[in-house]
């Protein structure tokens, strides 16, 4: 059964049809929430809240990209979650990996004799990138996650954040530039090509 049929049935009150849509899109929404909020528990809350909102507002969906429509809802849920967290800050002081554990980064602990396994290095790199994402302002982070993580084009991202195309273009460029600066703190974790470029420029 395709999305359009499931949406039609869900609109008529078929909860099972809606839940099939939830299962199809929950990974995408959770990813968006996690990359924007940076904390697993809060990302779960935002994802659940987004699906409740989606069910409530299904009658307002007017066709087009259902993925984009859901991303807009989870984006609003993320903003709400971040506003709540701003009132009660719980941000960790040091970078953490996706399991919420602190990770050992060369920026903190330098041990030239140690050669970590590739799997651990990948996790650390992911943690470092997430930490750099967290350093961006929410508006910048939102755009970079929509385009570079979710793979949306500028027009789709513009519809999701409800801002003009020029705003998406400008925020994305600035976000990438800041990410680039931030990632230099984790040079040892970056792919070798990245390191070579930096070493050549020193």
């Amino acid at each position: 059964m395709n999305d359009a049929t499931l949406i039609q049935r869900a609109r008529q009150g078929d909860l099972d049809a809606f839940n099939r849509l939830v299962l199809a899109y929950q990974d995408m929404l959770y990813n968006q929430a996690y990359r924007v909020i940076g904390e697993p528990g809060a990302a779960e809350d935002a994802t659940q809240e987004a699906f409740i909102s989606a069910y409530r507002k299904l009658h307002t969906y007017r066709g087009g990209s259902f993925k984009g429509w859901l991303l807009r809802i989870v984006t609003n849920a993320c903003y709400d979650e971040l506003r709540q967290r701003k009132r009660k800050p719980v941000a960790p002081l040091e970078p953490r990996n996706e399991d919420g554990e602190e990770f050992e980064s060369p920026a903190w602990i330098v041990d030239p004799g140690e050669s970590p396994e590739q799997a651990i290095q990948r996790r650390e790199l992911a943690g470092a990138i997430q930490w750099c994402l967290d350093q961006l302002s929410t508006d910048f982070r939102m755009v970079v996650v929509l385009v570079d993580v979710q793979g949306l084009d500028y027009a789709e991202a513009s519809q999701v954040i409800e801002k003009p195309l020029g705003t998406v273009k400008s925020r994305l460029a600035r976000a990438r530039h800041r990410m680039q600066d931030c990632l230099q703190k984790f040079r040892e974790l970056l792919p070798s090509a990245f390191r070579l470029r930096e070493e050549a420029s020193v």
């Binding site: 959770y30 990948r122 790199l125 992911a126 990138i129 990410m179 680039q180």
Partner: peptide
Amino acid sequence: DDLRMTRIAVKALPHLRAPRNFTLTPEMA
């Protein structure tokens, strides 16, 4: 080149699986 590498790094972030199902119960609906 640097922008490209930054984009590659961000795109390389692992695609996470939802830690649980977010299906709605009749009470939530």
